[in-house]
Design a protein around this nucleic acid. Sequence first.
DNA 1: GATGAATGAGCGTTCATTCAT
DNA 2: GATGAATGAACGCTCATTCAT
Lengths: 215, 215, 215, 215
Amino acid sequence: MPRRRTDDKRHRILQAATRVFARKGYFGARVSEVARRAGVADGTIYLYFKSKEDILVALFDEVMAEHLERGRTELRSIHGTAARLLAIAEHHLRLFGENPDLAVVFQVELRQSTKFLERFTASWLQDYFSLISGVIEEGQREGALRADLPRKVATKAFFGALDEMVTSWILGRRDYDLSRLALPVVELFLRGIAAPAAARRVRPALAAVAPSGGK
Amino acid sequence: MPRRRTDDKRHRILQAATRVFARKGYFGARVSEVARRAGVADGTIYLYFKSKEDILVALFDEVMAEHLERGRTELRSIHGTAARLLAIAEHHLRLFGENPDLAVVFQVELRQSTKFLERFTASWLQDYFSLISGVIEEGQREGALRADLPRKVATKAFFGALDEMVTSWILGRRDYDLSRLALPVVELFLRGIAAPAAARRVRPALAAVAPSGGK
Amino acid sequence: MPRRRTDDKRHRILQAATRVFARKGYFGARVSEVARRAGVADGTIYLYFKSKEDILVALFDEVMAEHLERGRTELRSIHGTAARLLAIAEHHLRLFGENPDLAVVFQVELRQSTKFLERFTASWLQDYFSLISGVIEEGQREGALRADLPRKVATKAFFGALDEMVTSWILGRRDYDLSRLALPVVELFLRGIAAPAAARRVRPALAAVAPSGGK
Amino acid sequence: MPRRRTDDKRHRILQAATRVFARKGYFGARVSEVARRAGVADGTIYLYFKSKEDILVALFDEVMAEHLERGRTELRSIHGTAARLLAIAEHHLRLFGENPDLAVVFQVELRQSTKFLERFTASWLQDYFSLISGVIEEGQREGALRADLPRKVATKAFFGALDEMVTSWILGRRDYDLSRLALPVVELFLRGIAAPAAARRVRPALAAVAPSGGK
DNA sequence: GATGAATGAGCGTTCATTCAT
DNA sequence: GATGAATGAACGCTCATTCAT
């Protein structure tokens, strides 16, 4: 598949931007540094992107489009709720574990302002939540998952847990394989951390203390 | 404990900063706007804070110090792992649910750059993680919690889930009581989402598909 | 009349701008050069003016307001159409003859774009035309001036003649006193250049050749 | 005289430039817009013109060369000072009245900087002034025009009057035939605006008030 | 000749910070 | 302590011009 010279240049700019945004932060990043690293002139950037912000947006849109597409494709051949959730988790953790710069951009830089975050939430995060939520719903229909927990909360908790794994890894020494955490996260999500013997007492215990327990 | 007039000014600056940072983002916020809103001159800000960044750091340090202190105090009078986790979750969600501007600053603005995020992780997040981790450890010692899950992963997952509740709430319409989510989050954390009958099959099912399952 | 420090600074910026705009042209002028010449920092300019363009506009508005005001005041004590027209002409030519930089800005830089020119026409030029036109009208009422020429054309011709004196002087060696031209210009305007004996034949002669002569 | 294909392209560029310069101003005009409008590639412009500035210069040189040439030719068959001045005025006003874009460029854009204006003055304006001045001189020799007015001042006044007719027309609604003004302008130039009875008193009246009257 | 992608110098403007009052 | 006018370094972006094809 031959790439047009043009696509190559665009790609190099995105790569350079990922690197620079990850190291300096979006606001700290200089367009001229992105250009230098991409091996193009400053002005060339503006032949491919409308503005500095547009680079960030394109970066995230394109990565996410591909990530989601791959996720959906893979899920087609995987059956069973547990296996599917594990696949999602591994995908997620692998994507960022293998691209730490990308991880930094997604975990940190993209959340720079509610503006970006809202855009990001409005587009791919919704899709991602749908993907997860769909798997959960299916599990509930099949009886593999409990139906007495709000699905939305469960979806967010699952995503939040994965997200925090990535964030912690990024900010830490990154000296372990991030995707290895998929298994414990999914297991925790499915079985909880309560000891089996204690599990049946969880609900009454919580009900006793929760401020809304009386309702 | 009488407050000096001076402390009042400092406090007003922090309040104004919370508001402005929440609305405009840290980089979009203007020191002069913070000053205006605080009812002081631009230069006055620098009598109380070293720099714009210092305002953000002070903001977060002080809020967190108080939050953690209150959390620790409260935990002394609460017993039982489930109840303690619920207390932490409620505390967390109530703090931000009652202070949306603060929530925006903590969820979004503080994560603007790895620099801030690292500082934030290095200080109070470590303490917060210790608090959670301590409760989990105690639960494991007492037999209330399983010990076959990495405690660190569980801690991060718990925090990540809470964090995501806050982020979603901020970015959404904020038309529900955030702290109400404490109960389902804790219950999910403790019991998992797998149906009781299916729960015992989770581990073998995962082991069968996990790439690292053979280990 | 004590000047506030602030007014002094503003004034210095306008003076510096006049100089720089005259020498380099508006587009060729650098804001930093204006600042340097005014002895202020670049940013200080923006405490007094909204933008580079605003400097030009303020320059012209203020000079013209003063010029017109003085012109109107002086005319009050001058009687007779010829004397009044002469006063206007001398005022005009003296203003620019004594301030060549100002002249350059007004004759050249201000006409840089229809945008400026329209603004300039809409505001003070209208007033200036009214001033001239008023004197002509009065002369016609008093019988000192012919009424068989369109007053608007006469007004523009008078102004155009003065304007061209200034432009030519600016572009030339400036080695004569510009205001000395007031007298011949006014005399020409009043009596025309035709020899008295030939004057009465002008109209028939023109009528014979003018394309619209038949009407 | 067959035109090479090449000349056509050059011509289209000049036409496009006239349009764009008139609408956006020289500095506001983009070379790429001129290219687009001319239907050529950006780079092609530089095969025909050395620079953006060169386009403007060529535009004006070529229009003026043709205008002057036509003017001179026409004057050969016109006799009588009044008729000749009228011919010049009509030519002038018709040229611009029929080409408003050209008028804008000549009245406004060309005067953008002393640099352009000086060049313009040095070349064709001198020729134009010579043309007018020649007619006046001839008139004076023949006794049709007074000789007691500085010829240079009269020339500039005549040109200035025409010039102002064009400028006013451009900036106004352009809802009348510009060339119709030739007749009143020439008549004014020849006979002046003073009422015949008052005309003989003009000189003494002016002498009485002119600051240089005592000389 | 013609193209148009690429270049990179250049500048108006912003705003955190300072400091004379 | 408090002020707010002044500072000036810093940068995203534009666009006339070039040149490999």
